[in-house]
């Protein structure tokens, strides 16, 4: 798919995903070694975005599986369309058929409801499989995932084994909500995405908020980078930086002062306790 790290890095940049070469290297390794890519890091640093961009950079289809507690095989892999099978049997009620024939009729791909995982394996075109927030699923699902991600095949009892037509690029994301098993971790290539550096974040803001002045963008990013050093329940993410910069631009702000920050702080901080913590010392946190 890609012949070198440079090529992939360039492609990611072209898709407006600004990142370091090291990130590109890890993604490149995952693709070339055909191993799942496990992306970890704080919320809002662009983990899910990475998978989306990867899909468009590789001209692949993005198939997304959102994990949650209680997610099971029938929601993730496949399910028989029971209603349709029932209808089919009713229609055919008059034609006397043997049990075997009837069974062969209703357990066919036509009645199979493909859920994301099966779809990804069964797809003819290249696929990026995004398994979002793996840490939210439970342990049983994790071991089930392990099986699929190591062999890229599944067994449907009525139909036999389905092998991946082409190995999808699997991207798993995790917020460290819980620690998952070593077995799964060991099969993955690891990528830790952290908050961007000042320079990188500035670039991102200028790219995503066209029309913002250099000075304003600098002030905004500097302030956000300072806020991240406070111990907060949830530090502002890149998305929030962009929203804030956009808001500042819309409000026609030239220079960030404590008044502006006070009235827009709720864009950056989502917890009241965090706001209470930062509000009294806003003027002290602003860049000089």
């Amino acid at each position: 798919m890609f012949d070198s790290v440079e090529e992939l890095h360039k492609k990611l940049n072209e898709c407006n995903y600004l990142t370091d070469r090291s990130v590109a290297t890890v993604v490149y390794l995952a693709i070339r070694l055909q191993k799942p890519l496990l992306v970890e890091g704080p919320a809002g640093v662009g983990k899910t975005e990475l998978a989306k961009v990867l899909a468009s950079a590789t001209n692949s289809r993005l198939i997304r599986l959102q994990c949650y507690e209680g997610l099971d095989e029938s929601k993730a892999l496949y399910e028989w369309n029971y209603q349709k099978q029932l209808l089919c049997l009713q229609v055919k009620q008059n034609q006397t058929k043997s049990w075997r024939e009837a069974k062969d009729d209703i357990f066919t791909p036509e009645f199979l409801l493909r859920r994301p995982l099966l779809e990804a394996l069964d797809s003819e075109e290249p696929v990026v499989l995004l398994i979002d927030e793996v840490d939210k699923s439970d342990e049983e699902f994790e071991s089930f995932l392990l099986e699929i991600l190591s062999d890229y095949q599944v067994t449907v009892p009525e139909m036999g084994t389905i092998k991946a037509k082409r190995i999808p690029v699997a991207v798993l994301t995790s917020n460290n909500f819980r620690d998952f098993g070593d077995a799964l971790k060991r099969r993955c290539i690891h990528l830790y995405l952290d908050y961007p550096t000042f320079e990188r974040e500035l670039e991102i803001v200028k790219l995503k908020v066209p029309g913002i002045s250099q000075a304003l963008a600098q002030q905004a990013v500097l302030f956000i980078q300072t806020i991240r050093k406070q111990s907060l329940k949830k530090a502002p993410s890149i998305a929030e930086t962009i929203d804030w910069a956009q808001a500042l631009l819309t409000l026609g702000v030239q220079q960030i002062d404590s008044e502006i920050v006070n009235s827009t702080l709720s864009i950056l901080l989502k917890y009241q306790s965090d706001i209470d913590k930062v509000l009294p010392k806003v003027s002290s946190l602003l860049p000089d």
Partner: peptide
Amino acid sequence: EAVALVGLAPDDFYTALSSTLITDQ
């Protein structure tokens, strides 16, 4: 395998080892 793919340029070598050997931040 990863090192064989990306070569021995210091940064890439580091990334290759770190992304494969370290499973926990």
